[in-house]
Design a protein around this nucleic acid. Sequence first.
DNA 1: GTGTTAATTTCGGCT
DNA 2: AGCCGAAGTTAACAC
Lengths: 229, 229
Amino acid sequence: MVVATCSVAYSGRLNAHLPLATRLLMFKEDGSVLIHSDGGSYKPLNWMSPPCVTDAIEVDDEQREAGVIEQWRVTHAKTADILVISVHDIHHDSSHELGIDPGLIKDGVEADLQKLSAAHIEVYGDGFSLIRREYFTAIGPVDILARDANGETVAIEIKRRGDIDGVEQLTRYLDLLNRDSTLAPVHGIFAAQEIKPQARTLAEDRGIRCVVLDLDDLRGLDTSQDKLF
Amino acid sequence: MVVATCSVAYSGRLNAHLPLATRLLMFKEDGSVLIHSDGGSYKPLNWMSPPCVTDAIEVDDEQREAGVIEQWRVTHAKTADILVISVHDIHHDSSHELGIDPGLIKDGVEADLQKLSAAHIEVYGDGFSLIRREYFTAIGPVDILARDANGETVAIEIKRRGDIDGVEQLTRYLDLLNRDSTLAPVHGIFAAQEIKPQARTLAEDRGIRCVVLDLDDLRGLDTSQDKLF
DNA sequence: GTGTTAATTTCGGCT
DNA sequence: AGCCGAAGTTAACAC
């Protein structure tokens, strides 16, 4: 963990350069390096992903006159990526043993939306029944396949954020499924926590119904059901 | 900048939890917080984006018995996102003034691919000539519009990574352009540094030719041309 | 400000 | 190991 005034050059999938300024350099146990400024977001200004190694390289006279006191080269072990840090001043330098991390536990992503709404298939309409989740086709799995009140098939595509991409994906599934005479006619439902206006317009143009899912509501249904049993 | 043994809970767009372990906490000038482990990539295990504020909250008896000596709550200023850090032990605590950062200068992204390949339009085929870059349509700009050896129009979509999305995008452009009788028939070329097999299949199914671009080759053409003049 | 697209995307799951 | 899709994506840029 080093705080230093430095400039940085990167060459790899692209070339990039950071002018002289004071920054925080993080050297992780796995060899990776992160160069952070005091703002922006969680993304570093520049970095090197593991596996990689850092070594000190000779500072030539010209650079020494320019104020460079040390120069570190970080090279990626597999690709040709190179990161060179030219250090002008070191303000802080400390090292800490962190140990392995147990990792992050998540809850509430697309998979949860799919499970919850499959368990409460009636949110898509009265009389709906589940055929199956992850119905596999030649071009990928349909999130949910259901039967509506009239006994007709409905393909449901679930997204956290409903974008045009999702509508295109569902359209491809519908094209394919409607060629299967045992399923046709297959209707489409585009479900998401949030649906972009443009995606909604495209979907409705294609006769696809849009449903906005509310995670809390779905969980609420779970709770009320729990109380019944 | 704090190194501490802590556990973290996040509630916002999803819920997430980090079990007790030693980690590096970065508190940036803009209020944002990053929680890093000693591995992984540049992405923190957990974080809070600006604008947000950190304040200390009361540690109740139960938590104190569990070993919590301090508890920090980071709340987002606009959304309802909350991050709670329960600190069990502080190993390091220091603060550094970094000042503003001049920012990163990049070179070699999609825009460069577009410029370079427009300058060497012959990479798309013998007898090709450039009509224009960024040809604007009602649904967005076509990366390159060119004329082939037969004098027919060609729309070229350029990506760094050629994915299905890009093929869909080019398809929409072609649909539109082919309705223009002064341009039709318009052919399509999907160009990228790397083309995914699925994208290639879809493109070729739709009569779109795929071209793999090599940035070094394109630069090489530049160099050899420089030598000629 | 809103929407669209790129990203040195990263990350996880599955084949 | 490679391919595909999601992400608390984030970030830049156009309208």
